[in-house]
Design a protein around this nucleic acid. Structure first.
Lengths: 160, 160
DNA sequence: GTTTCTGCAAAGGTTTTGCAACAAA
DNA sequence: TTTGTTGCAAAACCTTTGCAGAAAC
């Protein structure tokens, strides 16, 4: 089996393979292509984006397999579905490296900024515990206006 | 024009009407039906759910009009789209009364709990400001396990 | 009377599925 | 050899849109 995943984090492939094996499934060339595509970037992407990325590695990649593999990736926790407040679902490959990050979306230029904050995490945990639960996963999206844009009419990140 | 919205919060109809008028649009019987349906409950609902609720008031309600009115309601801020981590979009009619609430989803029984926390809101605002933004809107979803369920194998809210 | 709104049916876009050929173990 | 996987095309879903008749103002 060819491994088009040559230059992605070996830890990811390893985690993917052990997840796959645990479920009694098989590691295939096609799945490797899709995993490689998903982790070839640190940008957020849609299913369609990922399909295009995968097809650059292997043009025969079908949408069906893409969606099937996407499910495996989210189920394994390697990829996380995030809500950017847009019409489509987006997937975030950065949770492996930054397990607790959140998203801020700039309403002026559309940029998505990832951030983590220890205090925030602690309070969320307190509140959750006070309600009688223990937190498993969270998805926090803040939509905000850029101060720079407000004062000067533009911001360094450019426009939407 | 009949007003099937007889017993819903008059403040909501008022806000809806002024939003409508400001846009140069018209208040219609059909829109009133859909607004009445949306605010006849404090549960979260999908577009399909809302269609069914509206059809109980007026069986001729079409999906097309439902979707068109749903856009107006979210645009006006009366209804908010929320991400419950499920496959469909959900709409929350409770932001009029509780403008800053968040959602906790119980992974054991599926219940959605609304909560607000002042400390949480303050920290979020600090973090946002530190990044150079001013917060406009946020959507926070916490998925968690119920302590009661963990210790006793069931919880008072019943099961999924 | 003019402009917007409505329901219908058709179209659009995204995701899933049945199936026969193919590949992994 | 057995069982899981793939691509294709079709189906399933959810949402939007063009249009002609109806309703608001």
């Amino acid at each position: 089996m060819k491994t088009p995943a040559a230059d992605i984090d070996p830890g990811i492939l390893e985690r993917f393979e052990s997840f796959i094996k645990e479920k009694g499934l098989r590691r295939t060339g096609q799945r490797d292509v899709i995993v490689a595509a998903a982790f070839s970037t640190d940008s957020h992407f849609t299913a369609e984006d990922l399909w295009e990325m995968a097809r650059k590695i292997d043009p025969s990649t079908s949408r069906a397999t893409l969606y099937r593999t996407l499910s495996l990736l989210t189920e394994s926790g390697l990829l996380q579905e995030i809500d950017l407040g847009r019409d489509q679902k987006y997937y975030d490959p950065n949770f492996v490296e930054h397990p607790n990050h959140n998203h801020l979306i700039c309403l002026d230029c559309g940029t998505v900024i990832e951030f983590s904050d220890e205090n925030m995490a602690v309070i969320e945990d307190c509140v959750t515990r006070r309600l009688g639960f223990s937190s498993v996963r969270k998805d926090i999206r803040i939509e905000a206006r850029c101060e720079e844009f407000r004062t000067s009419g533009h911001c360094k990140r450019g426009k939407k």
